[in-house]
Structure formats: structure tokens, C-alpha cells
């Protein structure tokens, strides 16, 4: 379990240090698959993990979202490496500082047991790094990646939280549905919006 969480942390960080969209996509897919694996191997007595969570993590976050995003990028005629976090010292310093803050927060929130401590630290890192991407990037692709990262972090935090009723399951589904709708919107924006400069005509009602 610890190895999986460490791998997940690396997968969260690596795309920020490379700055290529292909690596970002691979990173997202790897996050979903690793979290799915983690959910499958979740220890008994540390909170229930529903089948819905496993399907969401493995299938939706590990496969569907990266594939749809791949289509978004293919739809974009001239995709450059600029639509992601710039791989420079400033970005790296920011990412490392957020990582340290996340581990400090985990120390306060869950000092023991070690598994929970690491899980919380990685989840908070994912959340903060997602917001870093969202706050610093204006490109459609980077913003989708930011939102998916935030969704992944929430899903990781939920693992083993001891709360698995139908409302939570429904909330999970709606969050995934929302992300898919956002991706569909991204597809439209990328395909149909070359430049958002013209003023819109007045609407019907």
C-alpha cells in the first residue's frame, strides 16, 4: 500500500517537472489506475470501499477521462507544449512548497497510522497541485487537467473515510458526470472557439 501511495505521489509530481501534455495525460491515467489498484487492495477494517468507487477510479478516471482528453487534444490542430505548466524553477519551487505544506497538514490531521498519514498527505498534495494548475493556467487543456486532478484528490481522500452510503455514491457519480460534461464542453470550446474576441449577439430570452 505504501509503495502504491508513493508511486501515486510521483505520478502527481512528474508531469509538473516535464511540462509536456502527453506526460500530463499519462499522469492522469496512471493516477486513476493506481488509485483503482489501491482501492482493490484496501485493507479490511480501514473503511469500506464500494464497487462504484473502484469502477470510477479504474474505468472512468484511469481510462475514459484520459481517452476523452486525448480526443480533445487531437481535435486541436496545433497543440503545443505551452498548454501546460511551464517547466521552470518557479513552478517546481511552488510545487515543492505545496508538497511540504500538504505533508505538514497531514502531520496535524493524521499523525498515525502511517498508511492514513501518507494517504492524507498525497490527497492534499493532489488537491493543492490541482489548484496550482487551475490558478496559473488559462489554456483549456491545462484547466481540464486541473479539475480532473482535484477530482482525483477528492476520490483519494474519500477512500476508507468510513462513510459509504448511497448519497455519497450518488455524489461520486454526479462529480464524475460533471467532469465528463466539462470535458464535452472543452471539446466544443477547442473545436469551435478559435479566439474569444467577438462580442456575442443578444440572446433570445
Amino acid at each position: 500500500m505504501t509503495a502504491l501511495l508513493v508511486a501515486l505521489l510521483l505520478v502527481l509530481l512528474l508531469p509538473l517537472f516535464v511540462g509536456k501534455w502527453q506526460v500530463s495525460l499519462l499522469g492522469l491515467a496512471a493516477q486513476g489506475l493506481l488509485m483503482g489498484w489501491l482501492a482493490c487492495r484496501w485493507p479490511h477494517g480501514a473503511g469500506d470501499v464500494s464497487w462504484l468507487t473502484i469502477v470510477d477510479l479504474l474505468l472512468v478516471r484511469g481510462v475514459v477521462l484520459p481517452v476523452v482528453l486525448w480526443r480533445v487534444l487531437r481535435a486541436r490542430a496545433a497543440m503545443s507544449g505551452r498548454d501546460g505548466l511551464p517547466p521552470n524553477l518557479l513552478t517546481w519551487a511552488g510545487a515543492v512548497m505545496l508538497l511540504l505544506a500538504a505533508f505538514r497538514a497531514a502531520e496535524v490531521l493524521a499523525p498515525t497510522p502511517a498508511l492514513l498519514h501518507l494517504q492524507v498527505a498525497v490527497a492534499i498534495s493532489g488537491l493543492l497541485l490541482g489548484f496550482l494548475v487551475l490558478a496559473t493556467q488559462g489554456g483549456v487543456f491545462a484547466q481540464v487537467v486541473g479539475v480532473v486532478r482535484i477530482g482525483n484528490a477528492v476520490a483519494l481522500l474519500q477512500l476508507g473515510s468510513g462513510h459509504a452510503d448511497w448519497v455519497l455514491a450518488l455524489a461520486h457519480l454526479v462529480l464524475v458526470g460533471g467532469t465528463l460534461v466539462a470535458l464535452r464542453h472543452a471539446l466544443i470550446v477547442v473545436r469551435e472557439v478559435p479566439a474569444a474576441t467577438s462580442a456575442g449577439r443578444e440572446s433570445p430570452v
Binding site: I188, V189, A196, S198, R201, S203, P204
Partner: peptide, 9 residues
């Protein structure tokens, strides 16, 4: 709803 580029964005 207006379907313009700016509205989509």
C-alpha cells in the same frame, strides 16, 4: 445558449 464563441467559453 446563443452559441457564439464567447458564450461557449
Amino acid at each position: 445558449r446563443t452559441g457564439t464563441a464567447v458564450a461557449q467559453r
